[in-house]
């Protein structure tokens, strides 16, 4: 007669493999976190069945409490979309650009944060490293409004596809850590 614990182990390992594949295939971050946490909990249970309670304690504490919390904090930090507004005073396109950005943020459930009162020399010195700014709107030429963003940011591709239908907005991408002149 096989004890019931040994009969449960193949089932648990099958569920673990299924969870690992599911973690790879999901696109949603929150689902990812839940699956990761469940994976760690189940793995800890497997460690107990294999008579390793020391490893199991560490797995529960780190894998299913601290790691998901760090990931959740990182996701919730990304909820704000910081835009540096460098348009000149009484520019005609300001209202239109801000309405577009607000619409965009509402669609992806971001919070639009507008920053405008930075000193200019502060902007020129590595603004993307120091201040966590996602986008800069400015207007150098007459009638054209430039959106400048970081290439590594995920939101830039979505914003670019949305901007294409307007002909007086244009998109410029720079690498992270690059200087803005």
């Amino acid at each position: 007669m096989i004890p019931i614990e040994e009969m449960m182990i193949p089932i648990f390992i099958g569920i673990l493999i299924a969870l690992a594949i599911a973690i790879n295939l999901t696109n949603n971050h929150l689902t990812d976190v839940f699956l990761l946490s469940g994976f760690s909990l189940l793995a800890a249970f497997c460690y107990v069945l294999y008579q390793a309670p020391d490893v199991s304690l560490a797995e529960v504490a780190v894998g299913s409490a601290i790691l998901p919390l760090i990931v959740i904090i990182s996701i919730s930090k990304h909820r704000s979309f910081v835009v540096l507004n460098l348009l000149p005073q009484n520019c005609t396109m300001e209202l239109e650009a801000l309405t577009l950005l607000q619409e965009f943020c509402d669609r992806y459930r971001l919070q639009l944060v507008l920053v405008s009162d930075l000193a200019l020399d502060d902007v020129e010195f590595k603004v993307f490293r120091k201040r966590n700014i996602d986008l800069i709107i400015e207007s150098h030429e007459y009638d054209i409004c430039t959106f400048t963003g970081v290439t590594t940011s995920l939101m830039m591709n979505r914003l670019e596809s949305r901007i294409q239908s307007y002909d007086h907005f244009e998109m410029k991408e720079i690498k992270e850590g690059e200087f803005i002149v």
């Binding site: 304690l57 560490a58 504490a61 409490a65 601290i66």
Partner: peptide, 25 residues
Amino acid sequence: YIILHGDLSPGGGFQGGAILATGFL
């Protein structure tokens, strides 16, 4: 409990420290 019983029962410094950190969070 996990820390102070580290040499008598399963557990020890690393595991107890991780649990303390969870409590602090």
